[in-house]
Design a protein around this nucleic acid. Structure first.
Lengths: 371, 371
DNA sequence: TTGAAAGCGCTACCAC
DNA sequence: GTGGTAGCGCTTTCAA
């Protein structure tokens, strides 16, 4: 660490040393085209109408000949902001976030914006710090994708930071739960889990175990709550013994399931993990214990990540149109909601859909009765 | 100064209400701290040694009080470049690239650099265009991760663009194959595939089929070549009939395997797909045809993506330390190789390692003989 | 339509 | 040590 922090200093010096070597500027282009910088600027970016067409082409030609690329930072200092959208995700390697990113990137590119992606590493503190740093870049839009965590300290700090950004003319959009005073794209976790529970109850499942993450992680909490609600609506009351708390990861799921098997499954028929990664961990633990997922114990997840269809048996889960969520976020960001005023904070709900697969066969169809 | 006081805040608010709204500047901080802008700047960023300590604290306090965030673009126009590393990947949603990204992001953050990630969508043209756009942002480093594609037109354009960037003081690092005149982090695909082939040959496999992507995709070509080499080294000569070309995706693998089964497997004992996604597609096609992967036909892939251990049977593959590749790329980028001169283009080889799993049981241990 | 010139916010050089 | 001041490259009035 210490080493690392020292390393960049020297390299920065190095970079500084040859920092200002040639680089074609607007002046160069203007000179080459025989016009003023102002005209060149107008020809290149401003409303083309006000520049004589032959001058326009002359400038364009000169720019092409010289390989001119506008200095975005200079444009930014002159104009005030940069045509980028800064995206903060919790984890790049998680398909959940990368799918959202895909949607945002597609929509942004269509709008001529470049997406800058930074990673908060699932830490609320880091998230606040990142927003601070990003503010300095003056992006036009900041989108934060990630489950809210109940953590009042950083929550307040994040709101402050975001408000300052907005006060400086930036647009903020959140992809998570609608609990912060900013436009939000909300995934309907509660309802998805509720419907899943009802479907499973309809398939005959009665004895279930919910494996979830700590309740302060909203996504997990919402799915947990929704599932319980769905069960209750189906006349199944949740026995507290059948919920286990663990980490929000594959290994969290593995550990929980291992412990469950060790303690004796009783006659649990189905394990619902609040995300697919955890569910895969659960399946793995079951297999390691000599049990066959979907036959000995059914398993369900949430997210519908791509491996959900590659495991055997294919995983029952709830699909979340993540790319759509990303697109919607950009739509919200670009929407001119000044008209709407402060009347209401726009919230877009993204619906989810249950995907029943082989990991949860109808109970009656099961060949081997759970002991 | 006078100008400033004349530039009426009121007119700003009216004229360009959303364009240039308040935003604390260095001037504000300096005024608040009762020092000059120069001193404030030095206190905030320059070598602290040259500023009286009480002034430093006064400035820091003022900055904190005002919620000051430096305007990165302004710093950039003044300094010449921005403390960011621009990363170009082919596909965000692909774990291959997101793993590399993780490594780069970790290393960059340790060095105080922000990572900007853009997506070329597997198109060489788009890649060139992105580099052009990115050049405009004047990042300190540009890293391109993605398989080179034999495409001489865009290849030349890319080299030009990159050279111009370097001429302007930027650092370039490639993560792919060492075939462009820039520092490169190279994944040893050839050797990984070669060793895999030898291991499989050692396990008793003799009749194999290679499913690969078009040869102009270097990654696929290298793995194909390496695998063939490995077989030959083991005394197994490749019959051309046993290679199939398809897309570099899961569905490409699926289709190829489906076709293979349809045409009759003959007595193929093992299918090697040049990446795990394709291998998963192969497995899926086999299952859909009523065959059991690993029992009826063995399957092997390359990459060791996370689902490789979740499928049943777990997939034999070649693990690629992608995060390490990312770290190495940053190391190369920050390395002061001016001393080295143009003598040689630094290339770091990332070793790969074979992971034998249940999808390729030793042939003798198989219970059911392949028909 | 066009050019001159005044910034945008910040850094860096140069005297004091 | 510290404060003027001259840029950095670009946009945008304001006259002409």
């Amino acid at each position: 660490m210490d080493d690392r922090s020292k390393t960049p200093a020297s390299s920065r010096l190095t970079a500084t040393a040859r920092q200002r070597p040639s680089s074609v500027t607007l002046q160069d282009v203007a000179r080459e085209a025989g016009v003023s910088a102002a005209t060149a600027s107008r020809a290149l970016n401003g409303s083309t109408r006000n520049v004589q067409s032959d001058n326009v082409s002359r400038v364009l030609a000169a720019a092409a000949r010289l390989g001119y690329v506008p200095h975005v930072s200079a444009q930014a200092t002159a104009k005030g902001s940069i045509p980028t959208v800064a995206l903060v995700v919790s984890d790049v390697a998680d398909p959940y976030f990368s799918s959202i990113a895909v949607g945002i990137i597609d929509a942004a590119e269509a709008g001529g914006l470049v997406v800058t992606m930074t990673v908060a590493d699932r830490s609320p503190e880091r998230e606040v710090q990142l927003v601070r740093t990003l503010r300095g870049q003056r992006p036009q839009i900041i989108i934060i994708a990630g489950s809210r965590i109940n953590d009042t300290d950083t929550r307040g700090a994040l709101i402050d930071e975001l408000k300052q950004y907005r006060a400086a003319g930036g647009r903020v959009v959140l992809i998570s739960q609608p609990e912060l005073p900013f436009p939000t794209v909300a995934i309907d976790n509660v309802d998805g889990a509720r419907l899943l529970a009802r479907e499973l109850a309809g398939a005959g499942y009665r004895r279930l175990c919910i494996i979830h993450a700590p309740h302060r992680i909203r996504t997990s909490y919402d799915r947990y709550t929704g599932f319980v609600t769905g069960l209750e609506e189906s006349g199944i009351s949740m026995d507290a013994n059948f919920a286990m708390e663990t980490e929000f990861t594959r290994s969290g799921g593995y550990e929980a399931a291992r412990e469950l098997v060790e303690r004796g499954l009783r006659n649990i028929e189905l394990i619902f993990a609040v995300n697919d990664a955890m569910a895969l961990g659960v399946m793995s633990a079951l297999r390691d214990a000599g049990l066959v997922p979907g036959r000995d114990v059914a398993v369900a997840g949430f997210d519908d990540i791509s491996s959900a269809v590659d495991v055997v048996p294919a995983l029952t889960t709830v699909t979340v149109p993540l790319r759509t969520a990303g697109l919607e976020a950009m739509r919200l960001a670009l929407a001119d909601d000044d008209a709407a005023g402060e009347a209401g904070i726009p919230t877009v709900w993204i619906p989810t859909a249950v995907r029943l697969r082989e990991s949860t066969p109808p109970v009656s169809g099961r060949l081997i009765t759970v002991r």
